[in-house]
Each structure stands twice: as structure tokens, then as C-alpha cells.
Amino acid sequence: MSTLNAQPVGAPTPPDALPQTLNSGKCGMLCLIASEITFFGTLLAVYLFYIGKDPVGTPTPAEMLDVSVAPLKVVFNSIFLLTSSIWITLAVRQLARGNIKAFAVWWLLTILFGLEFLVGTGFEWYGLIAEQGFTIRTNLFGSGFYTVVGFHAAHVTIGLFLLSLVFVLTCLGKMHQRHTEKVELLSWYWHFVDGIWIVVFTIVYIIGH
């Protein structure tokens, strides 16, 4: 039916109905992030609901969570995670200009900063679990804490895996300017992981403390 393409006499020229700014990659990533937000939203709502409802009482968040500003403690780690968002933005900007070398440097910095966060979380958990015997079974607070923070850390891990994949491809000389958009989408995911950490931190380490 080729007639489907012929403009009938007198018909208004059809506009291109599609938005210019939203292609399928962007739309898909935004939807993924939206569904992730409702997932985390549910976990966080449950966490909020259970604050102060622990029948066992001890240990409390105040006893367990160290919010002092010291190296490898949570505040310190958070700064690393959040600044990695800046590095990834700079990296994408360099790729858009075709500076592969500069891209690689900023990208690696992003990975290292993310890694620091993960290692820091590892130390925190090691201290809690191995030294203080505080686990997911201990009480309601433990259940919520490990679930929320654990799911976030899992997302950081997935993010780091994908970031490293891009880095390896860069080292192999496979990354070019034309990949800017895909890399940018990955950076959106990374921003989401960082952004949700602000919420997690606020709820777990400040409100619930």
C-alpha cells in the first residue's frame, strides 16, 4: 500500500510527531530510573515507618552508626561518591569534544571515587558485622539498614562494573566521539545512584539517627 505515504490533495503536511529532544535511549533510561525510584521509594518508606518502632530497642542507630567526619567513615565516603558525579560530567564533556585522553582520565577518576565509596561501605559493614555482631537478624533497625544500604551498594557495584567496561573499551581504543550519547546515558544512571544516596543518607544517617 504505497498510497499510505502519498500526501492526499489538500491535506495539511503532517508534522513530525516525535519530540526532537527525546530519543529511545534517553526515554528508556529515564523510565528505568523512574522504576528504580519507586523501588527505592518503597524500601525507604518502610525504613521511615520503622524508625523508633523497634521492640528490642538496642542497638539503636545512634549506637551503631558512626557519623563522625573521619577518613573512611560514611560522611567521608559520601563526599567521594557525590564528587564522582562531577568527574563523570567532565568526562562526558571531554568525549563530546573528542578528547579521548582527557575523557579516560576523568572517567578513571570517577571509577576510583566510586570504588572508594564501596570500599568504605565494606569497612563500615565489616566493623558492624564482624566486630560488633550487628546483622540483618539483630533487630528491625538491622533489617532496614542492611536492606536499604545494601541495595544502594549493589547499584553502585553494577554502576562500577559498567563504568569499568567503558574504561576497558577506552583503553582498547574502541571509544569515540560518536559514543558520547551512550556514555551520557550511563552517566545519568550514575547520577541517579548518587542522588538516591543523598536520600538514603538523609533518612538513615540523619533522620533515623
Partner: peptide, 12 residues
């Protein structure tokens, strides 16, 4: 062994 919906452990 978490306690989210375990009423003995304070779950709801």
C-alpha cells in the same frame, strides 16, 4: 532472618 513482617520482632 530479617524482621520486616515478623510480628514478634516488631514487624508489621
Amino acid at each position: 532472618g530479617a524482621h520486616f513482617f515478623d510480628v514478634q520482632g516488631g514487624g508489621s
